[in-house]
Design a protein around this nucleic acid. Sequence first.
DNA 1: GTCTATATGACGATAGAC
DNA 2: GTCTATCGTCATATAGAC
Lengths: 229, 229
Amino acid sequence: MAAALPEPADRRQRRRQETIEEILDIALDVMAEHGVAGLSLGEVARRVGIRPPSLYGYFPSKQALYDAVFARGAGAILEAMSTSYPQVRDVQPLTAALLLAARRFTAWCLANPVYSQLLFWRPVPGFTPSDASYSAAVALVDLTRTWFADLRDAGLIRPDADLDLALRDWVVLTAGVISQQMANGPDEDVDTGRFTAALPNLIDMFAHTYGPADRPSPRSRRKGTDRVH
Amino acid sequence: MAAALPEPADRRQRRRQETIEEILDIALDVMAEHGVAGLSLGEVARRVGIRPPSLYGYFPSKQALYDAVFARGAGAILEAMSTSYPQVRDVQPLTAALLLAARRFTAWCLANPVYSQLLFWRPVPGFTPSDASYSAAVALVDLTRTWFADLRDAGLIRPDADLDLALRDWVVLTAGVISQQMANGPDEDVDTGRFTAALPNLIDMFAHTYGPADRPSPRSRRKGTDRVH
DNA sequence: GTCTATATGACGATAGAC
DNA sequence: GTCTATCGTCATATAGAC
């Protein structure tokens, strides 16, 4: 591993990797400005400071560039939630743990709209992620399922609940908040958003269904009682 | 109004309107095949059987064409739900009424993915609907609010519920189902979809929060009890 | 109303010199 | 590895003849 002098081959490979990362950074910028489907190799090359043909030394096609961005985004959100789930492990009651995790997830999605659109919608007509890239996205769902299993083992989710149903309902619920917020208030964040503000209420509903039986029934939030903070 | 003989000006205007409708039909086809952002005027012209410049006799720009499609879609879903809401007016209990309406709405969205994406997401970078077109989309929300008010007057929604909060939660909930279904199972319909199957469960949660106080608490659906039919 | 012709430019991708 | 040069295709939009 440790070499007295860095070998030229290593330096070359490291510099190459740095260039790849720079291309991905800039591709993300371009997509943020021109839309996910509006990625242009010429525009990327111009900002990198090279000519368009040179990009083909790093990515064999535009699709490959999309795929690399997809994989990067999947890895990033996976890492973010891998960190978040253990942090809410001992939070009680269930609603508090769910709200914390949902806010982390929502915050990441709103802060990374390009990744979110590429990962969770289908904005690019011809593009399908490769199996390798898609597996990272699947790992996120698996991670959430494991988290739910932990919650059930900890007694926060009722023991007779179907985890797959709970997971499905959870995914739909968070997807609803995020899609509405991204489409109707893309410049608001998780604290100020009109739709992220629905999270506490929706999570109360969710917890009433999947939480332990001895939970006090919260019923409806009445007029004017909807506060995030 | 009634003329013994149709005036040439009328015939001309009618034919012109028919051409406009045909262009919109074909634009919808092209978007379905190439993605909403992949609309190409040349492709539309080719299918209509005219040359691209001739399109400019009907729409002054590509944006105007998008706007016309947007307005058409908004009008269509508004009409669909204007018909649906009165039909579920006397359905009881609340969950049955909500489920019927949600299934109508979801079915329309899944059957009209191009309209849905254009109306509810932001897939076209430079495009913003005109005020006139957007008002039709707002009218849909207003219509749903009126429906909720009717439900409250009928005693199906608890009298102390905040209708705006209920509306927001309802929109988020249905948006979650639709966005997940469109992104992850675009070829499934409302009856076979993996995410539309979550509607009964989610609606139970919703009804428990906003329904009348004397409703029996349904609690969680247990393992294997999740049936749509 | 539709056409031809054209302006003007972008796009993804490849060949081959250096 | 990066370049120049170029291919071939497509795009939106306008001018002006018929």
